[in-house]
Amino acid sequence: MNISVAEAKAKFSELIERVEAGEEIVVTRDGKAVATIAAPVDVASSRQSIIGAMKGKVWIADEFDELGPEWDEYAK
């Protein structure tokens, strides 16, 4: 739902009820989005979905930490 700043000020309590019901509200000024009213993210449950998300998709080469001869003068 998009709503102007002025209308949001007048209907704030109603907007909060709609957000609690799962809706996301975009607040606009002069037709441009300036803010979003949304329910807070449950950090505990979102962390669980992130941990291990890249498993098997990222790898590090065996020689990753080996410097080539061009670094000899800096590695002393």
Rank of each mutant, 00 (worst) to 15 (best):
K11M: 03
G68N: 01
I50V: 07
G68C: 03
V5T: 13
A75L: 11
A35S: 03
T28P: 04
V19L: 01
W71N: 04
R18F: 08
S46C: 10
I16E: 01
V26K: 09
A35P: 03
P40K: 15
S4M: 09
R18A: 08
N2W: 11
I25N: 01
K76S: 13
I25C: 08
I16S: 11
M54G: 14
Y74P: 08
E63G: 11
E20Y: 10
I37V: 13
E63F: 14
E24S: 05
G31T: 15
A10P: 13
A39Y: 09
T28R: 09
D65G: 04
E23H: 10
A35G: 01
E66T: 04
E23L: 01
A38E: 02
Y74G: 12
G56N: 08
R47F: 06
M54F: 15
W59Y: 14
A35F: 00
A38D: 05
K76W: 00
E73K: 14
E24K: 14
M1F: 13
A75P: 03
E23M: 01
S49F: 12
E14S: 10
E17A: 13
D62N: 08
R18E: 00
G52K: 09
L67M: 11
E73A: 10
I3E: 09
A8N: 12
K9S: 00
G52E: 10
G52F: 10
A38Q: 15
K9G: 02
W71K: 01
S46T: 12
A35Y: 00
S45D: 07
G52W: 07
A33Y: 02
D62M: 10
K11W: 02
S49K: 11
A33C: 10
D62S: 13
K11T: 02
V19I: 03
A39K: 15
I60Y: 12
G68V: 00
V26S: 07
A38Y: 04
Q48M: 14
A53D: 13
K9L: 02
A38C: 06
G22V: 03
S49I: 14
S49C: 08
I51A: 12
E23A: 03
S13L: 07
K55V: 14
Y74M: 08
R18L: 04
K57P: 09
I51K: 13
M54N: 11
V34N: 04
G52M: 05
A38W: 03
G56E: 01
A38N: 05
K32L: 12
L67P: 05
K57H: 08
I37H: 04
S46K: 07
T36G: 09
Y74N: 11
A38G: 04
E17M: 02
A44V: 15
E63C: 10
E66I: 06
Q48E: 06
V34R: 02
V41W: 12
M54K: 12
P40L: 15
I25S: 07
A39H: 09
S4C: 05
K9F: 00
P40F: 05
L67E: 04
L15G: 00
W71I: 05
I3V: 07
R29K: 10
T28M: 06
M54Y: 07
R18Y: 02
A75S: 03
M54R: 11
K55S: 15
A53F: 14
I51T: 11
D65R: 13
V41L: 11
I25W: 08
K57T: 09
W71P: 00
E63V: 13
E73M: 12
P40Y: 08
V27L: 15
Q48C: 15
